[in-house]
């Protein structure tokens, strides 16, 4: 109601600011921010002056902005569609002391899975029907480009011999992460890959696949020999802990990299928008928040592809390093020499 009273020549700007805020799912805050006094909207300087005069309420506003940003990034039990209400997700009783209730990110993952299954059952069906004299078209062709890229440039070039075994995992992880990243950029969506638990789970898969591949390639003896890094036995007391830590740092870095990239992008977009609300200025909204957040949004689109690719690429690289035979032979020769 108050919003109607302060209708302004610059209302278009306000609408845009609200729309962008809605776009990144922060509708809850926009109502309060738009209820600002008209004189504060004139200049950045006056807005900052006003902010220094009324210290306490502004500080409250800042805390509120931080809360909203964090609330957007965090997982929760509530799926909010702001002007239209929200859905409370069901709670499931803890099993073996673990709370396995469905959260926003779980729902997003299921959505991603559903989309993946629909798209790829369609594409897979096309391939089943296709003879190798026919060329793929449309969606099939687009997916083939990505699949072929993962197959040749990621799997084959990094793993080498026997890459076919790991191909289903790499393809699934690539498309799963890519779609999670992209759905996080859709209004009302949430970035499941911006949650450390999700990325950690995926990194654990890579870890186990890497270790199993290493065990299969080198055998248990070769695997243990690898832990000593081929050094003299007197150094083992140092080398073995370092190598063991090294085993875990790789997937840990994978998890942190994906999570941090996806979270950071969202926090930057939200922060850019909240600058205009904190400063209570339409000028800032038009000159800074909207263009910069659009720029970061486009960057995020690129990052969504890039991070999915990097996760897959590094997974393939780790598997390739673990199964490489040259190192093993070298170590074996050295051990035999000692």
């Amino acid at each position: 109601m108050k919003r109607l009273n302060v209708l302004h020549p610059k209302s278009l700007v306000k609408v845009m600011a609200i729309l962008v805020a809605l776009l990144v799912n922060t509708g809850g805050f926009s109502g309060e921010a738009s209820a600002q006094s008209p004189e504060a909207s004139a200049e950045v300087v006056s807005a900052t002056a006003a902010a220094s005069e009324h210290g306490a309420p502004v500080a409250h506003g800042e805390e509120k902005a931080g809360d909203v940003i964090m609330h957007h990034v965090f997982d929760s039990n509530i799926f909010a569609f702001h002007p239209f209400g929200e859905i409370e997700l069901p709670k499931i009783a803890p099993v073996a002391g673990i709370d396995i209730s469905i959260t926003k990110h779980v729902v997003m993952m299921w959505l991603v899975s559903a989309i993946l299954l629909v798209v790829f059952s369609f594409v897979g069906g096309k391939y089943k029907k296709m003879t190798n004299r026919q060329a793929p078209k449309g969606l099939t062709n687009a997916m083939e480009a990505l699949v072929e890229f993962i197959r040749l440039d990621v799997a084959k070039s990094n793993i080498g011999h026997g890459y076919e075994k790991h191909l289903p995992y790499l393809l699934t992880v690539f498309f799963f992460i890519l779609l999670c990243n992209l759905l996080g950029l859709v209004p009302y969506g949430a970035t499941a890959t911006g949650n450390i638990n999700v990325t950690l789970a995926l990194a654990i898969f890579t870890f186990f696949i890497t270790q199993v591949a290493a065990l299969k390639a080198h055998g248990l003896k070769g695997f243990l020999v690898h832990l000593t890094a081929g050094t003299h036995w007197s150094l083992w007391i140092i080398m073995i802990p370092i190598e063991v830590i090294g085993l875990f740092t790789k997937p840990f870095a994978l998890a942190i990299r994906l999570f941090a990239n996806m979270t950071a992008g969202h926090i930057v977009i939200l922060s850019l928008i909240f600058i205009s609300f904190i400063l209570k200025s339409y000028v800032v909204a038009v000159a800074v928040s909207v263009p910069f957040s659009i720029f970061i949004y486009l960057l995020e689109l690129f990052v969504a592809f890039l991070q999915a690719f990097i996760f897959t690429m590094l997974s393939a690289l780790f598997i390739g390093l673990a199964t490489a035979h040259e190192g093993h032979d070298e170590h074996a020769a050295e051990v035999a020499h000692h």
Partner: peptide, 23 residues
Amino acid sequence: PGLIFWTAVTFVIVLLILKKIAW
């Protein structure tokens, strides 16, 4: 842990189905 559990379950199911129907 709940989210890790759900991620793992979801991912494994998606992996198995996609392996069968698509990859």
